[in-house]
Design a protein around this nucleic acid. Structure first.
Lengths: 248, 248
DNA sequence: CGGATGCTTGAGGTCTATCAAAGCGAGTGG
DNA sequence: CCACTCGCTTTGATAGACCTCAAGCATCCG
């Protein structure tokens, strides 16, 4: 929010040179374990940044896939339309997360990516990335790792959706959010939710009312302090005990 | 089952040369759109076959990841342990499907792969595959497609688990199975299930009793004919109507 | 400051999990 | 080859969780 305010409003922020080599997110994004020389070549790859306003789509299902996106600032959800019309959220992405992997399979995006707040992304042209991956062994390896982790992450969500009750689901969701915010230097216990109860609900496979009720139950049990979008985790161990252990 | 009988029992079937270039599954597996020369190099890659007996694991969660596996014959399930001890099935794999992608992310397998019938797989050493992918643009592209499709497939399962009722889940499951069997030259309407009701249940996020009851309900409604593991799809359109449309 | 959106809370009904028991089949060993 | 046993499946009864419908309230934003 604070960094965004400065960079915001201006239309094409292309003046600011996007540079992976000095990006504060480089530990979270693609380039890890690359040599300086390789890092410089990667800088050439990521030449463009893009700003997405809250509520707008970065891409939509059905659109041709041309690039991956790395979130610099802001918050996104990815959603796919359920066959019966309702929407289903497949994930939430924050700074350092990669967006667009759903397009790799068939060169067509399989879901929408919607900004939940004003956001900024790096544009990574995919053809360019594949070319570079062919040249740099380490980049290739790293890219495969990212894809592989996404697959494992999805399996974790399947476990969550298929094998847990509402309380466990919500606890796992909050712990996941807490951990990721902590990794990015934010407080892991004082969260501000960027998404609505309904979005949490379709992500977890329950209704928004059930999410709301579960929040108040957690508060009554002394696990959380809930004031609308502001969540304070009071008893982190208690939440972990609910899930069993699996945080990711 | 019939082809297996011949190749079975013998311990190392290395006598039989595994060759992608003349494999009947090459349309389903990795190599699609490769030139003859590239195909020959790929043959070098897949030098080993392995036999897995029903009930045995091809690999287990926690084991070091060294190779991908392509199913030649047979049927597998992949499962991950739920935090509270129960097992959750993440997928079913048949001839032409790839196994082991869960290990790419962190060089450790994230789930078990268990044979549901006596099976045979091609072993694809991963280090070798990555090397070759660096050389052959088309192989690299194809490999990325496979990973990308797996991600999209997982999103489809998340949709199924999170947004559908039992009837829709089971219908979607049967339609998926039917389609994949059809693509492999089997009857798309007369299926023999290789998995138990419980395995279907944990895959769909319901109990085995609910699966069983749903089968009988489908039979009563004239959609199926069910005799234990033998399922005959009577009204395919009716099943599709239940789901809405999304088959995959 | 006022409308709109999102959140909370309640009541009732449905669906599914759970516990329990019996029936059928496939595979095994005599 | 047959009988037996074990595992899988089916079916029933009950209780509890979640969804649905409905209303009132807080908050955010222009």
């Amino acid at each position: 929010m604070s960094t965004l305010a400065r960079a915001g409003s201006g239309l094409s922020a292309s003046q600011l040179k996007a540079a992976c080599s000095n990006c504060g997110l480089r530990e979270l994004c693609l380039p890890v374990g690359l040599s300086d020389a390789e890092m410089k070549r990667l800088d050439e790859l990521v030449t463009r940044k893009s700003t997405v306003r809250r509520g707008d789509s970065l891409y939509r299902a059905g659109q041709p896939f041309e690039a991956l996106f790395a979130v610099r600032t802001g918050f996104f959800k990815t959603r796919t339309g359920s066959p019966d019309g309702r929407e289903h959220v497949t994930g939430f992405q924050m700074a350092g997360d990669l967006l667009g992997l759903d397009g790799i399979g068939d060169d067509i995006h399989a879901c929408d990516a919607v900004a939940l707040e004003d956001s900024q992304v790096c544009v990574i042209p995919y053809a360019h990335l594949e070319r570079l991956a062919g040249e740099f062994k380490e980049l290739q390896r790293q890219f495969h790792r990212v894809l592989g982790r996404e697959i494992v992450r999805d399996h974790g969500v399947m476990l969550l959706l298929g094998g847990m009750k509402t309380e466990q689901k919500l606890a796992a969701f909050l712990l996941n959010l807490s951990r990721r915010l902590g990794e990015r230097g934010f407080s892991p216990t004082a969260l501000v939710l960027r998404m609505t109860r309904e979005e949490i609900g379709t992500y977890l496979g329950v209704t928004l009312e059930t999410v709301s009720r579960c929040f108040t139950r957690f508060q009554d049990d002394g696990l959380l302090r809930v004031r609308h979008k502001h969540i304070e985790i009071v008893d982190l161990a208690g939440l972990q005990a609910l899930v069993g252990d699996a945080a990711r």
